[in-house]
């Protein structure tokens, strides 16, 4: 019988080393939340606002470019601070990888990871088929709605801002939406929300399309085909081209914009195949294999 995901890595590297990126990620998620809560809970106003817009130390504006895009489409021209804040976020996530937001900052990630963990634990059978490209249709829909209604419609139901704002400002009945996301991921389809539906993630995928910070299968020749990386990856389709594409001339860099840079593949690999690196690691041609990888992802 096959042992649990990452058990070999734990045996070889030790529990801590086999969970270091997961721990770093949880620490970051909670640290971000703690920064936002230090003001309202303890009176230390380091960060004011929420993920839609915040002001750090009274000088650094940060704004969600996706919400701002909807506002622009709705016909409103925002003031300077919102525009500067969105620009800072766009540049930052371009550099570290768009969906790094999903894995390292978004509070819903904790909810959906918990649902995924419980789903595996309970052995929930079957999974509704929801295409991984559905999120782009939802993204398009939210922008179309903003255009048609002249209102940021998506923010009426967006679980991401609902949860984050809810924790900081009070959630009301918003927890119903969060429970719905949890149940969706638990019973309807694995990784349904973050991996298939969420337009916020889809937006950040686009932001990180050409991001330099990537996970690289640097020692892919050491792979022993245990498939733990596929099993642990929230976007399993992104792994294969980089890991197994040597014969087809595909470089070892995971170039798919769907990769969330969560680093779990690094954790669970007992052979240290994966590491954080730069997209330029595909020597000579930084876009080597990009088309093939994109194609592989879109097949879903």
């Amino acid at each position: 019988m096959k042992q649990g995901i990452g058990s070999e890595a734990i045996r070889v590297k030790g529990w801590f080393a086999a969970h270091q990126w997961l721990l770093a990620r949880r620490a970051t998620q909670f640290a971000v939340l703690a920064l936002f809560l230090a003001g309202p809970w303890l009176g230390y106003w380091i960060v004011k606002g929420n993920l839609n817009y915040s002001l750090t130390l009274g000088v650094l504006p940060l704004a969600d470019p996706y919400v701002l895009a909807q506002s622009l489409v709705a016909g409103h021209t925002p003031e300077r601070n919102a525009l500067v804040g969105a620009a800072v976020i766009l540049i930052a996530y371009f550099l570290v990888g768009g969906r790094t937001y999903c894995a390292w900052v978004c509070p819903v990630n904790v909810v959906t990871d918990a649902a995924h963990w419980l789903r595996a634990r309970l052995g929930v059978p079957g999974s509704a088929r929801i295409s991984r490209s559905t999120r782009y249709w939802i993204l398009a829909m939210t922008l179309a709605l903003a255009l048609i209604t002249g209102s940021i419609s998506w923010e009426l139901v967006n679980p991401v801002s609902m949860l984050h704002r809810g924790i900081i400002f009070g959630i009301g009945a918003g927890w119903i939406i969060i429970v719905a996301v949890f149940l969706l991921d638990l019973f309807v389809a694995g990784r349904a929300w973050c991996g298939r539906l969420c337009p916020v993630g889809a937006f950040y995928s686009a932001v990180g399309r050409f991001s330099p910070l990537r996970i690289v299968a640097v020692r892919r020749e050491q792979c022993n085909d245990c498939a733990d990386c596929y099993a642990v990856c929230p976007e399993p389709l992104v792994v294969k081209p980089a890991l197994k594409g040597a014969a087809d001339g595909i470089g070892p860099v995971i170039l798919s914009p769907h990769c969330t840079n969560c680093g779990r593949c690094i954790d669970v690999c007992s052979r240290d195949v994966f590491a954080f690196g730069a997209r330029f690691s595909n020597r000579g041609n930084p876009l080597a294999g990009a088309a093939e990888q994109a194609a592989a992802v879109n097949v879903s």
Binding site: K48, N52, Y53, D64, V67, S71, A74, S151, I152
Partner: peptide
């Protein structure tokens, strides 16, 4: 117009 402009950030509340 307000609903197309407000970012729901709560800065005014703070």
């Amino acid at each position: 117009e307000f609903l197309g402009a407000c970012l729901r950030c709560g800065m005014c509340v703070r």
